[in-house]
Amino acid sequence: MNWRLLGERAIETLIRVCGVSAIVFVFGIFVFVLKEGWEFLTHRLDLVQFFTSIEWRPTSPNDPTYGALALLAGTAAVTAVAMAIAVPFGLGTAVFVSEFCRPRTKEALKIVIELLAAIPSVVWGFIGITLMNVTVIAVTGAPVGVNVLNSGVILALMSMPIIVSIGEDALKAVPDHFREAAESLGATRWQVVYKVLFPAAKNGLLAAVLLGVGRAVGETMAVLMATGHSIRMVFDSEPPVLHVLSPARTLTATIAAELGEAPKGSDHYQALFVIGLLLFAITFAINLAADLIVRGIRKE
């Protein structure tokens, strides 16, 4: 009797620990990243330089500079290109899967899309360096095939699955009587989609896009391989253009490439952790926004 009660208690505690551990881990990682970069962040880092300079020369013996603007721009550019491709294609696929295709096609498509999500990111990088590289050169005539466009396409494919599956969920959640009502008013299937389902599911679709953005911002290995990894400002302000055929470097790739070489505790090492913090803040903001938006749907 007592043993059973005890066992019950133990299992309950174990489950509770599992539940709380997620919070502990996220918080722990944040504290760790903050701690590693703290001293440099508070004492020696020039935040104005960090956000406005494109000079990222942490290993310069005489005058190391820590300007992350080009890296930030690289991340933004690659993400923007990826979303320009993935949002229309992803939402289009979501609409097709949820509204237009037959049940059998739907099953097949969902499996394929899940497979797309299961491809390791290094394999994507590999495709970027080889297949996409050649294709980009052949199609655009650019001297170098590993650039913003290349990694944008790769990232688009990588963030499609999440956009499709969250977008499909959002469309599926629209009650069927709305479709029936619109159809009985004489709307064609496409009119039902854009006049009824899009307004009804707009929060869920927006959340899908934001999670796709989060995926693209955080991706490392594939962009490390497919961007060309050279620090360059890919945006021009006068006139405003994005050089999609220019190689670039992202925040994530910088950390991955340099952390191994930076002596532990050095300014360079700590600067990389500050970049980590920045990434943390960006993805946290995006995920929070997506979460609040999804919550907004439930309230309705």
């Binding site: 029936e180 009502a181 006049k195």
Partner: peptide
């Protein structure tokens, strides 16, 4: 054409189903 038919023959359902607009 179904849209034309449904223009001529309207329907009111069991549960009121105004569109979410």
């Amino acid at each position: 054409s179904l849209p034309e038919l449904r223009k001529a023959v309207g329907m009111v359902f069991q549960r009121p189903n105004p569109l979410p607009i």
